[in-house]
């Protein structure tokens, strides 16, 4: 027990209190509402637009989850950097691979 003062907890520095119960409840309600929306969309036939709409909802949900539940809004620089890096590099992976599938049938000659 006595050593816990000396040992720095360096994996996450957090100077701010965690979200209040009210705050968490609100976040949860928003997320649940969005989930309802996703389900509704799932049960209607929107044709090709469906995938875009449902992905948009999922993205909003994801952002709410990371920013509020995962407390990204109070994150330090390194946290933001990692979050952005993750998105950016996933984007790179998609960019080139999907480009291949979209352009493979074009010939240069």
């Amino acid at each position: 027990m006595s050593d816990h003062v000396q040992k720095p907890i360096i994996f996450e520095e957090d100077h701010l209190p965690p979200a209040t119960i009210g705050g968490s409840t609100l976040t949860f309600l928003i997320l649940a509402g969005l989930a309802c929306m996703a389900t509704l969309i799932g049960f209607t036939d929107l044709g090709p637009a469906k995938v875009w709409v449902s992905l948009a909802v999922a993205c909003v949900q994801g952002i709410v989850l990371t920013v509020f539940f995962m407390d990204l809004r109070h994150g330090d620089k390194l946290t933001w950097l990692t979050a952005v890096a993750a998105l950016f590099w996933t984007f790179l992976l998609f960019l080139f691979t999907i480009t291949d599938y979209l352009t493979r049938q074009f010939f240069a000659f």
């Binding site: 996450e12 390194l78 990692t82 890096a85 996933t90 992976l93 998609f94 691979t97 999907i98």
Partner: peptide, 20 residues
């Protein structure tokens, strides 16, 4: 968070395949 980056890219790999 750093560990989660690797998880994002891990699932990113399969999601990319899915998209293709």
């Amino acid at each position: 968070w750093l560990f989660l980056v690797t998880e994002v890219l891990f699932f990113g790999g399969v999601l990319c395949a899915y998209t293709a």
